[in-house]
């Protein structure tokens, strides 16, 4: 565990400008989405136990705390996807490194434009009761 903690602390204190935050968020969102994917494969595997067990366990996903987790998931997937596009732009068009700060800010705006309405729509049912 210690190297992981050291690595994360190292990452958090390294330079700290756009490129580093883009990298750190890409890594954290990637790990988060992978962990959710593992959970999701396990829950779908439980379909094999029949409707009784499967529908009984679905209350977990429908509970308010999990609805909030799902909003994090949507953010993680969206960020990872849009940041992946930024990475590929930089890979295949090296001159874009000259405007990489702007590229990252544009990316955040695009993520926000898609994420905010999606998050509101997803959280609304909790408040409606």
């Amino acid at each position: 565990m210690v190297p992981i903690v050291q690595g994360l602390l190292g990452a958090l204190t390294y330079r700290g400008s756009e490129g580093q935050w883009a990298w750190l968020l890409h890594r954290l969102s990637g790990i988060g989405v992978l962990l959710f994917l593992a959970l999701h494969i396990l829950d779908i595997f439980l379909l094999g136990l029949g409707p009784g067990v499967f529908d009984e366990l679905l209350f977990i996903y429908k509970a308010p705390p999990f609805r909030v987790m799902e909003v994090f998931l949507i953010f993680g997937v969206l960020y990872h996807a849009i940041n992946g596009i930024r990475i590929m732009i930089i890979d295949f068009w090296p001159q874009s490194t000259l405007v990489q700060r702007t590229l990252f800010r544009v990316e955040l705006v695009i993520v926000a434009i898609i994420f905010i309405p999606a998050a509101i729509a997803m959280l609304a049912p909790i408040f409606r009761g």
């Binding site: 379909l47 029949g50 409707p51 499967f54 529908d55 679905l58 996903y61 429908k62 609805r67 799902e70 949507i74 997937v77 969206l78 996807a81 992946g84 596009i85 999606a118 729509a121 997803m122 049912p125």
Partner: peptide, 23 residues
């Protein structure tokens, strides 16, 4: 993945809706 994951999330959350997902 950009196409199939985003489509999957959009479809399950906004076309069907989490409340309607069951066996």
């Amino acid at each position: 993945l950009m196409f199939i994951v985003l489509f999957h999330l959009f479809y399950m959350h906004f076309v069907i809706g989490v409340d309607k997902i069951n066996y």
